[in-house]
Design a protein around this nucleic acid. Structure first.
Length: 960
RNA sequence: GCCCCGGUAGCCCAGCGGUAGAGGCAGUGGUCUCAAACACCAUCCAGCGUGGGUUCGAAUCCCACCCGGGGUACCA
C-alpha cells in the first residue's frame, strides 16, 4: 500500500465516510461483480443439454430474449469509451428484460482471427495466438469492470479449435450442397448425383454419369456446389498479399483494409454461391425489424433487376446476348457495346475495316484487331480511379463487326467500351442512346444515330438531334416501334415490356429474366491466421472433403506467419499461401475410405467473415460436442414466433459499417443451414439496431498534427497546448488522433455506474455524439443524490422513512415508472435517465424519501446503474440480488395529474390559463374558458368566429 | 450526381400538430470552508438552419434551399 494517500480523498473520507465517492463506488462495484460471477447470476438455462438447469424449472414456458452485440475483434490497443457504448446499451436492455421475467441470453465472444494479429506477429515474432489471447484477456477485464451481465459460459472465440471445428463443418455442409432452383432450397449433393445416375438430369456433354472419370464428375459437381473452387476473375491485392471479396474493395478500387490498390486477376479460388440466394435475401428482408437504411443498402447491393435477355445475331451465325431492363426500347437500339474483355470480341472482329467507317471509330488503327488490342491495352492499364475520373468522357472503339437488331432488322455496329462492365449482366448491352444517359453520351461522341422510341413528356421534340441528354422515364408511351409482327406503339412502358418479351420468347430470340448485381462470394484468402479448409487433393489433383471425424483441421505451426506481400502496384504478382510453408503439414497420409493414400492439403484459409457468419448459433449451445447446435435449443432461442415470423435473435446491436458484408454473409449461411434442416429459423437477426459513434474533439497544432486532447487548456475562448494556440475539430476517437479516453480512467475517477449512466444519457443510441469528459460529473452527482436519498453519508445508516407516500409523491413515482418503462422498451435510454433524475430530484426537494418509493426508484435505476442499485437494495433489507426482481409497474390511477393547466389562446396567442381536471370534456372546458374574466377582457367586443377546444390542455378562440 | 440521417439555449440533448424545455454540462450569485476542492441552493441563457406552403394553431406536416455527418457511384 502506498503511504501517499491523496489528501482530498483522506479529508473526504474523514468527514463523510459513507459518501458515494469513487472509492466507495469502486468497492461496491468490485464486490458485486464478484458476487455475480460466483453465483453465475447471468447464466441463462437452455431447455436441454449441458447448459440446462433442472432447478430453473420449465424453461421453455418462460418468455425469453436473445440479446446480442456485434462480435468485437480483440484489439491489442485496449478499449476507449466509444467501444462499450453498444455493450452497455444491450446490457441495460437485457437487465430490463430479466426484470420483466424473461430468460435472457446475453454474452459476448471474440472474432479473433484476422490481419492485425498477423501483422503484429510479423513485427514482433510473437505467435498470433499468444497476442490474440492476451488481447482477449485484456478486453475481458476491461469489460468486466463495467458490470456487463454476460453469461460467461457462452463466450466463445473463433480461434478456439472447438469453435472453428464447426466453422469447418458448416463449410463442408455448404460444399456438399447444391441449390435446387425449382424447389428454391439447398439440397445435399448425393441427391444431385442420384439425378445424374438415373439420367433424370443430363450431364453437360450428354455422356452417362458412369462414363465420366472422377475428375470429370468433380468438375460437373463443381458447377452446382454452393462452395466451389474455380478459376475466376478476382480482386488481387499485392500490398496485402491476398485476394479480396468484392465487398472488401472500395468504389475507387482499393482495399477497404490498408487502402492498397486492387487488380483484376484470373486465379483459382474458393467461391460461395451466394447468388443462388439473391431472391430470398431480398424477399426475407421484409419481415425483419431493421432500420430501413440498412435494408435499402442490402437491396442495392444485391441489385435485383427484372428485364430480358435478347439475342442479336452476328454475321458469322453466332449471336450476342444482352441483358436489358428496358426491352420496350428495343426498336431504339442503334448500336451495341461489349465489355473489352468479352470473349466474343475476338471471334467477331473481321480482318479489315468495312467500307465507309468513320475515322473516329477506328482509333486510328489499321485493322479492327489492332484497334481492339490497342483499346484493351489502354483499358487494362487504367486503374479504377482513373476510369472513374474519366467516367464522364466515353471512350471505345469499333470492332468492325455488325449485328442485327432482331426487331427492326437493322444492322447495328458493335463497339467495345469500358463503360460496359464484364461483371454485370452478360457483359454486353444494346445501346438505346435516346433513353439512356450513358448511351447518349457515347452516341454523341461517336456520331451514332439516336432514335426516339419513348414519347417525350417534357415538351421536347421527337427528333433527337437537338437533345442535350437522353429522355429517361417509365411514365410515358412507346412510339416508332413496330414491325410486321409486333407493334408497341401507344403502349405504356410496362405493357410494352410484357408485349415485346412475350414476342421474343415465342421466337426463341429472348426471354424475360432477372439479373443480380450481387456476385458470388470469394471465400479464400492467402493468410496464416484463419481457418484452414477441410479439403485435400489426391495425387490426380481430385478434390476430397475431409470427413467430420477429421475435424478440426488445426492451424499448423509455420516458421514465418507473414503473408507474401508485394509492391502494392505489382499487378503481375500472384498470391502464395503462408500455410504452404509447412511441407510436413501440407503432405499427409490419410485413409479416406479406400486405404491410406497421399494427399496435399488445401493451403488457403477462410476469410475473416467465416467465424462471424454463425456465432449466434454457437452462443446457444457453446459446448455441444455432437452438433453445431441442438435443435431444441435453437428452436427455443431463435425459432419463428408470432412476432418474429422468420425467427432470429431478438435484438442485435452494432455499427452500421456491417450493413452489407457481415449481415449479408451471415444471412446466407443461416439460410443454407435452414434449408439443410439444421436450424428452424430462416433469418439470424430479427431486430437490428445501429448504435451511433462516440466522437471526440481533435486538437491540431499549426502544422495540422493532432496534439493530446487531455492536455488542452481552454481560455479566452481559445484552446492551447503547451502555451500554443491549437485548433479544435470534431473527429473519431482513437489513438492516432490523440483523443482516446479509456473507460478505466472514468471508472477510477467516478465508477462504472457513472460511466454507464453517462453513456446512456448522452443522447439517443442511434446518433453519433461528442464525448465530453467534463460532463460526466453530472451522472456522478445524480448517483450521489440517489445514495443520499437512501443512506446517510455520515453514518451509512438508512435514512428512508416508513411513512406512506403522499399522493403527489405517488404521482411523481408512477409517472416516472410509466415513462421509464416506455423508454426502456424503445431503447430510449437517454430519456429514461432524465426521468429517473427528475424523480430523484423531486425526492431531494421533498426532504425525505418514503421507503416504498426508494425501493421502486432503486429498481427503476437498476438496469442502468446495477452496482449501486444492488448495494442500496441490500441496505433496504433484501437478501436476494435484484437482477431477477420485478421491474416496477405503474398504477394508472397515479399516472395522470390531479389537475392540468389549460391554456386559452385567442387567435393562437396565449391569453389565460385555467386549472382543470384531466377528465374535463371539450364542452365544459369551452364554457369555462369563455367565462374567464381575462378571456372576456381579451376578446372585447370582437365577434367569436370559432372555438377549438382540445380537452384538457387547450382552448383556442378565433375572433372576428 | 443520387440515397439516407441530423440542424432547438454557449455545449450535449427532450419536445415530433396545441403554454418552446424533461435531464445534464458550462457560466453567474450564494451556502459550507481559514481558504480551496467536493457537495448543496439559486439563477442567467434560445424562439427552434433559411425561405415558402397547409392549418384556428407549425420546432413538429409538405415543398425548395443552405450547412454538417454517413452511404453509394458508368449495374444496362
Amino acid at each position: 500500500m502506498s503511504e501517499t494517500t491523496p489528501a482530498s480523498g483522506a479529508a473526504e473520507a474523514a468527514t463523510e465516510p459513507f459518501r458515494y465517492s469513487s472509492t466507495l463506488a469502486a468497492d461496491i462495484e468490485s464486490r458485486w461483480q464478484d458476487v455475480w460471477e460466483k453465483e453465475g447470476t447471468f447464466n441463462a438455462p437452455n431447455p436441454v443439454g449441458p447448459l440446462s438447469d433442472p432447478a430453473a424449472g420449465e424453461v421453455s414456458a418462460k418468455p425469453h430474449s436473445f440479446i446480442m452485440d456485434m462480435f468485437p475483434y480483440p484489439s491489442g490497443a485496449g478499449l476507449h469509451v466509444g467501444h462499450p457504448l453498444g455493450y452497455i446499451a444491450t446490457d441495460v436492455y437485457a437487465r430490463y428484460q430479466r426484470m420483466n421475467g424473461h430468460n435472457v441470453l446475453h454474452t459476448l465472444g471474440y472474432d479473433a482471427f484476422g490481419l492485425p494479429a498477423e501483422q503484429h506477429a510479423v513485427a514482433t515474432g510473437e505467435h498470433p495466438r499468444i497476442s490474440t489471447e492476451a488481447a482477449i484477456a485484456n478486453m475481458r477485464s476491461q469489460l468486466r469492470r463495467l458490470g456487463l451481465g454476460h453469461d460467461s459460459r457462452r463466450s466463445i472465440s473463433t480461434i478456439d479449435p472447438e469453435y472453428y471445428r464447426w466453422t469447418q463443418w458448416i463449410f463442408l455442409q455448404i460444399f456438399n450442397s447444391w441449390y435446387d432452383a425449382e424447389a428454391a432450397t439447398a439440397r445435399p449433393i448425393p441427391e444431385l448425383v442420384a439425378q445424374f445416375e438415373s439420367g433424370e438430369r443430363a450431364t453437360p456433354d450428354g455422356r452417362g454419369w458412369s462414363e465420366l472419370s472422377g475428375a470429370e464428375r468433380e468438375e460437373v459437381l463443381g458447377e452446382y456446389r454452393l462452395a466451389y473452387s474455380k478459376e475466376v476473375p478476382v480482386n488481387w491485392c499485392p500490398g496485402l498479399g491476398t485476394v479480396l471479396a468484392n465487398e472488401e474493395v472500395t468504389a475507387d478500387g482499393r482495399s477497404e483494409r490498408g487502402n492498397f490498390p486492387v487488380f483484376k486477376s484470373k486465379l483459382r479460388q474458393w467461391m460461395m454461391r451466394i447468388t443462388a440466394y439473391g431472391d430470398r435475401l431480398i424477399a426475407d428482408l421484409d419481415p425483419l425489424d431493421w432500420p430501413e437504411a440498412i435494408k435499402l443498402q442490402q437491396r442495392n447491393w444485391i441489385g435485383r433487376s427484372e428485364g430480358a435477355r435478347v439475342d442479336f445475331p452476328v454475321a458469322d451465325g453466332s449471336a450476342i446476348t444482352v441483358f436489358t431492363t428496358r426491352p420496350d426500347t428495343l426498336f431504339g437500339a442503334t448500336y451495341m457495346v461489349l465489355a473489352p474483355e468479352h470473349e466474343l470480341v475476338d471471334s467477331i472482329v473481321p480482318a479489315a475495316w468495312p467500307a465507309d467507317v468513320p475515322a473516329e471509330w477506328t482509333g486510328g488503327a489499321g485493322t479492327p484487331a489492332e484497334a481492339v488490342a490497342a483499346y484493351r491495352a489502354v483499358a487494362a492499364s487504367k486503374s479504377d480511379v482513373e476510369r472513374q475520373v474519366e467516367a464522364k468522357v466515353k471512350t471505345g472503339v469499333f470492332t468492325g463487326a455488325y449485328a442485327t437488331n432482331p426487331v427492326s432488322g437493322e444492322s447495328v455496329p458493335v463497339f467495345i467500351a469500358d463503360y460496359v462492365l464484364m461483371g454485370y449482366g452478360t457483359g454486353a448491352i444494346m445501346a438505346v442512346p435516346a433513353h439512356d444517359h450513358r448511351d447518349f453520351a457515347f452516341a454523341r461522341a461517336f456520331a451514332l444515330p439516336i432514335r426516339c422510341v419513348v414519347e417525350p413528356t417534357d415538351g421536347r421534340d421527337q427528333d433527337a438531334s437537338a437533345w442535350d441528354d437522353a429522355f429517361d422515364t417509365y411514365d410515358s408511351v412507346i412510339v416508332n416501334s413496330a414491325n410486321s409482327g409486333v407493334s408497341l406503339d401507344g403502349l405504356s412502358v410496362t405493357d410494352a415490356k410484357a408485349r415485346i418479351t412475350a414476342w421474343l420468347t415465342e421466337r426463341g430470340i429472348g426471354e424475360g429474366t432477372v439479373n443480380f448485381r450481387l456476385r458470388d462470394w470469394l471465400f479464400s484468402r492467402q493468410r496464416y491466421w484463419g481457418e484452414p479448409f477441410p479439403i485435400v487433393y489426391d495425387e490426380d489433383g481430385v478434390m476430397h472433403a475431409l470427413p467430420d471425424s477429421m475435424l478440426p483441421v488445426e492451424v499448423p505451426e509455420v516458421e514465418d506467419y507473414s503473408p507474401h506481400t508485394y509492391d502494392p502496384y505489382d499487378a503481375a504478382s500472384s498470391p502464395k499461401t503462408p500455410l504452404s510453408r509447412n511441407e510436413a503439414w501440407v503432405n499427409v497420409e490419410l485413409d479416406l475410405g479406400d486405404g491410406v493414400r497421399s494427399y496435399r492439403r488445401e493451403t488457403n484459409t477462410m476469410p475473416n467473415w467465416a467465424g462471424s457468419c454463425w456465432y449466434e448459433l454457437r452462443y446457444i449451445d457453446p459446448v455441444n460436442a455432437e452438433r453445431v447446435v441442438d435443435p431444441a435449443n435453437e428452436q427455443y432461442w431463435l425459432g419463428p414466433t408470432e412476432t418474429k415470423p422468420v425467427g432470429g435473435v431478438d435484438l442485435y446491436v452494432g455499427g452500421a459499417e456491417h450493413a452489407v458484408l457481415h449481415l449479408l454473409y451471415a444471412r446466407f449461411w443461416h439460410k443454407v443451414l435452414h434449408d439443410l434442416g439444421h436450424v428452424s429459423s430462416v433469418e439470424p437477426f430479427h431486430k437490428l439496431f445501429n448504435q451511433g459513434m462516440i466522437t471526440a474533439d481533435v486538437y491540431r497544432d499549426e502544422r495540422g498534427f493532432p496534439v493530446p486532447a487531455a492536455e488542452i487548456e481552454e481560455r479566452d475562448g481559445g484552446y492551447f497546448w503547451q502555451g500554443e494556440a491549437v485548433k479544435r475539430e470534431a473527429g473519431k476517437m482513437g489513438k492516432s488522433l490523440k483523443n482516446a479516453v479509456a473507460p478505466d480512467t472514468i471508472c477510477e475517477e467516478y465508477g462504472a455506474d457513472t460511466l454507464r449512466l453517462y453513456e446512456m444519457a448522452m443522447g439517443p443510441l442511434d446518433v453519433s455524439r461528442p464525448w465530453d469528459t467534463r460532463a460526466v460529473v453530472g451522472s456522478y452527482r445524480f448517483l450521489q443524490r440517489l445514495w443520499r436519498n437512501v443512506v446517510s453519508e455520515a453514518t451509512g445508516e438508512l435514512v428512508v422513512t416508513d411513512e406512506p407516500a403522499d399522493e403527489p409523491t405517488l404521482r411523481a413515482l408512477h409517472k416516472a415508472i410509466d415513462g421509464i418503462r416506455a423508454d426502456m422498451s424503445g431503447l430510449r435510454f437517454n430519456t429514461a435517465v432524465a426521468k429517473a433524475i427528475e424523480l430523484n430530484n423531486y425526492l431531494v426537494k421533498r426532504g425525505s424519501t418514503p421507503r416504498a418509493v426508494a425501493e421502486q426508484l432503486v429498481l427503476l435505476v437498476a438496469p442502468l446503474a446495477p452496482h449501486i442499485a444492488e448495494e442500496l437494495w441490500r441496505k433496504l433489507g433484501h437478501d436476494e440480488s435484484l437482477v431477477y426482481a420485478d421491474y416496477p409497474v405503474a398504477d394508472p390511477v397515479y399516472v395522470v395529474d390531479e389537475s392540468v393547466t389549460c391554456v386559452v389562446q385567442i387567435k393562437g396567442k396565449v391569453k389565460a390559463r385555467l386549472e382543470v381536471a384531466p377528465s374535463i370534456s371539450d364542452t365544459e372546458l369551452e364554457a369555462l374558458a369563455l367565462a374567464d374574466p381575462a378571456v372576456i377582457a381579451a376578446v372585447g367586443d370582437a365577434p367569436i368566429r370559432k372555438v377549438i377546444a382540445r380537452a384538457p390542455k387547450l382552448v383556442n378562440i378565433v375572433t372576428g
